[in-house]
Design a binder for these strands. Structure first.
Length: 348
DNA sequence: AACGCGGGGTC
DNA sequence: GACCCAGCGTT
């Protein structure tokens, strides 16, 4: 293992340059509920996207007990637009377990056993909320450590080695004295100095100890395995409204893509485009005179691109079939995932 | 170990 | 466009 630079240099930099963030406590002791909630929201989600949503979520569910006693549909609706909806389902399940046991476990192993909490989140909550001497390893930390050590092996294969290197920081007494600050200092360094492109090495408190910077290869690290191309899929959807301005929505199956979220009824998403005639069998109400809404709604998912066409019809009064519900069109967007909002954009 | 799982910011 | 983000659960 190469020598790691001193934690004291990073902590001194952090004390001068730390970011002020909505979900980061100011001086007072952090609330474990708020730390946990922010860490789950921040999984694969940018700080800018989480900021306003964290405040809104906290206003609606101020404590873990309030979240535990809420209906799951209310939690899913509050999460709408944030993506990775399994997070919301696991968040709710986790809140119930924590409320039942009277509080969060205070060590990483105990946290790791809860739904939606993996190695990263367990370490982050343990360090930030409970001062446990652990180093959470997220994308920022992987990048910082890969550069410090000039680790040439590509991700994700190099994950175990980078995690082992990061864990080595807790041998430094200065890091061990302030585990929460040290973790957040690593995040801030990765977000503002040791960035994926064009890192600001001239401003880095660890410049002297960075092997990649010394070799001039920092911009090429961490190496990553090539990704597969995303295929294009097609769908046709049915916007059924009534005279009272209600729109017909359907609840998706509880697991899988957009699991548990509301949607605008439609065909399955497949490789080949749909013709209106063959899509008709998927219409929520048979025999209506569907008319094509001009335009194509496009949306990108993690592993495929989607193009959707929209058909519209109206009835005097909606009578939702089993598994569906009617909502005022004006408020439907707030309850729908972004991919479905793209369809509503077509009728505006 | 590989894959499924959203959406948006940024260059 | 391509990359990446305070990753997790399943297989």
């Amino acid at each position: 293992m190469p020598a790691l630079p001193p934690a004291a240099s990073l902590l001194a930099w952090y004390d001068r340059h730390r970011r002020v963030l909505p979900f980061r406590s100011r001086g007072n002791r952090p609330d474990p509920y708020q730390v946990w909630l922010s860490e789950v929201m921040l999984q694969q989600t940018t700080v800018a996207a989480v900021g306003p949503r964290f405040d809104r979520f906290l206003a609606r569910f101020p404590t873990v007990e309030a979240l535990a006693s809420a209906p799951e549909a209310a939690v899913m609706e509050e999460w709408a637009g944030l993506g990775y909806y399994a997070r919301a389902r696991n968040l709710h399940a986790c809140a119930r377990l924590v409320a039942a046991r009277g509080g969060f476990p205070e060590d990483a192993d105990g946290l790791r056993a809860l739904p939606g909490i993996g190695a990263y989140t367990a370490a982050a909550v343990a360090a930030i909320a409970f001062d446990q001497p652990v180093v959470p390893v997220d994308g920022n930390v992987e990048r910082v450590v890969a550069r410090l050590a000039a680790e040439a092996a590509p991700l994700p294969g190099s994950k175990p080695r980078l995690a082992a290197l990061a864990a080595g920081f807790m041998a430094d007494a200065d890091a061990r004295a302030r585990p929460g600050d040290f973790a957040q200092a690593l995040f801030d360094l990765g977000a503002t100095i040791c960035t994926p492109r064009a890192p600001a090495c001239a401003l880095c408190p660890w410049r002297e100890g960075c092997l990649a910077q010394r070799q001039g290869i920092q911009e090429s690290l961490p190496a990553k395995a090539a990704k597969r191309a995303r295929p294009l899929r097609h769908g046709m959807h049915f916007l059924l409204t009534d005279a009272a301005g209600q729109v017909l929505l359907r609840r998706r199956p509880p697991r899988g893509l957009l699991g548990g979220m509301l949607e605008i009824p439609g065909t399955p998403w497949r490789d080949a485009p749909w013709a209106a005639a063959e899509a008709a069998e998927f219409a929520p109400v048979p025999g209506l005179p569907w008319r094509r809404v001009p335009g194509i709604a496009r949306h990108g998912f993690t592993h495929f691109e989607l193009e959707m066409l929209l058909l519209a019809a109206s009835v005097p009064r909606l009578a939702p079939p089993e598994g569906m519900e009617a909502r005022p069109l004006a408020e439907a967007a707030g309850a729908l995932p972004t991919v479905m909002r793209r369809l509503l954009d077509l009728v505006r």
